[in-house]
């Protein structure tokens, strides 16, 4: 957040002031017809800040490490950027490296992707439990025909080239099989 944004502001600081919105457009339709729709453009600008735990997680990713967090006095390691042990209701103040090897705990085969970052369909979207973690995170499984993906299958993350590592979840492009034997599915219950 820029320093100027930190100042107390009680009125709009959007570029151009208050009156920057495009005008409302009413479709030109004949007399007597009911207007079914008007388009009223609206834009709001937000400057998000990630918070402590996501910052730690993203910094780990930038170093090629998959981090989880543990609350003081509790065992469960939660991978990713949650920042809370939801059972203890305490912040996961201790960073713990998890994985990178992991197990698929559940998955589906996606035939209709969402957003620009979706891989070509069909692809496998999976819940993935990194070794040492208590709960799974979402990821894409590639490098194997989609119909051969299994619950319990062992996978490892595939990272972007080192020079492209940044503060983003996209550092891990996808997960691929390790070829190790599957983990029995019954052992994964409660860790999705």
């Amino acid at each position: 957040m820029a320093e100027s944004d930190m100042e107390d502001r009680s009125t709009s600081t959007m570029p151009g002031g208050l009156w920057t919105q495009p005008s409302v457009s009413v479709p030109d339709i004949g007399d007597g017809e009911v207007i079914q729709r008007i388009t009223e453009p609206a834009s709001l600008h937000y400057s998000y800040t990630p918070g402590r735990a996501p910052t730690r997680f993203l910094r780990g990713l930038a170093e090629g490490k998959l981090l989880g967090g543990r609350a003081e006095g509790h065992d469960a390691v939660y991978p990713g950027s949650r920042g809370m042990d939801p059972v203890a209701a305490r912040p996961t103040v201790e960073s713990v490296e998890v994985g990178p090897d992991a197990t698929v705990t559940a998955f589906c085969i996606v035939h209709i992707g969402f957003g620009e970052k979706a891989p070509p369909t069909p692809f496998v979207s999976a819940l993935i439990l990194p070794d040492g973690a208590a709960a799974s995170m979402y990821g894409t499984v590639l490098g194997i025909p989609y119909e051969e993906v299994r619950i319990g299958m062992r996978v490892r993350p595939v990272w972007v080239p080192e020079e492209e590592l940044g503060l983003t979840s996209e550092n891990i492009t996808h997960w691929e099989p390790t070829g190790e034997p599957d983990v029995p599915a019954e052992q994964l219950k409660g860790h999705m």
């Binding site: 996501p54 969402f114 970052k117 979207s125």
Partner: peptide
Amino acid sequence: PIPFQQQLVAGAGGYFAPFIREYIRR
């Protein structure tokens, strides 16, 4: 999409479909 948060490229159904698969397996 929210910055810093992983975007689920599978969409809303992609969130629940893995649980359905696990139900079928069990």
